[in-house]
């Protein structure tokens, strides 16, 4: 009986979804509701109103910035919950030796390549408003650089390079920046998190760049912290 239940549920769900999909208009049609209702406003007005030629960044950092702030709070909350369950990593000398020493070739290649990875991450973060990229992607590249370092040079070394005391500042940085800008725009008489509160488009671009950088650093360091907590070495 119990074995029959899952296939039955799956078939029912599949029939339900298929019936819904057959009612949908054909994909990619220019007359679809998604292409008619809100999109023309973003495409025609977006570059003038936000100063970003990348429309996805324009939506994330200007039109729907409140959602982005909520998202940073969600990531921060995930980190806080992880800390409440397992706690910060505690590494003592000689407790976590590498089980397999990587070959010298890998080490030397990584010593050469890691600066380029970091420069690429910063490039992706800073160019987010104008080309393919953005804070989240750059932050993820940054986190993957930290993870590669920890995997090749040992967990002890990675924790020593970026200890928890230094990481705390970056983890909370994005939320702090969002809150400061939000209340600044409120005190200037505009809506909460209205980036154009001075009416100067140059200043708005400057604030957008700051948002990209803070989102990138915060999400990257938060993901790296989650990795550290997961890989935490047990005592004894």
């Amino acid at each position: 009986m119990k074995k029959m239940f899952t296939p039955l549920l799956l078939t029912l769900l599949g029939i339900f979804f298929l019936l819904a999909v057959f009612k949908m208009p054909p994909m990619g049609n220019p007359d679809n509701p998604t292409n008619v209702v809100a999109a023309p406003r973003y495409i025609t007005q977006g570059p003038q109103e936000t100063g970003c030629s990348n429309l996805v960044s324009a939506i994330i950092l200007n039109y729907r910035i409140y959602d982005t702030m909520g998202e940073m709070v969600v990531i921060f909350g995930a980190l806080a919950a992880a800390l409440a369950i397992l706690g910060r990593e505690h590494v003592k000398e000689g407790l976590s030796p590498l089980k397999v020493e990587p070959s010298p070739l890998v080490r030397i290649m990584m010593v050469i390549y890691i600066p380029f990875f970091i420069i690429f991450a910063l490039y992706v973060i800073i160019n987010g408003g104008f080309s393919v990229g953005g804070g989240f992607q750059g932050g993820a590249i940054l986190a993957s650089v930290i993870i590669i370092y920890a995997l090749i040079f040992g967990f002890d070394n990675a924790v020593k390079r970026l200890p928890a005391k230094k990481r705390v500042f970056f983890e909370g940085m994005a939320i702090l920046y969002f809150t400061v800008i939000g209340f600044m725009s409120v005190f200037m008489g505009k809506n909460f998190l209205d980036l154009n509160f001075l009416g100067i488009s140059m200043f708005q671009k400057f604030l957008t760049l700051g948002l990209e950088i803070s989102i990138g650093l915060a999400s990257g360091v938060t993901i790296a912290s989650l990795f550290y907590i997961l890989k935490k070495v047990e005592r004894g």
Binding site: N54, V132, F136, Q137, L151, L230, K231
Partner: peptide, 23 residues
């Protein structure tokens, strides 16, 4: 959606896979 492709390559097949292996 090249922006999402970039994020997907890094996040889904890079970071999340490493987290799964550790777990």
């Amino acid at each position: 959606a090249p922006m999402l492709a970039l994020a997907e390559v890094i996040i889904e097949s890079g970071i999340i896979s490493v987290l799964f292996v550790v777990a």
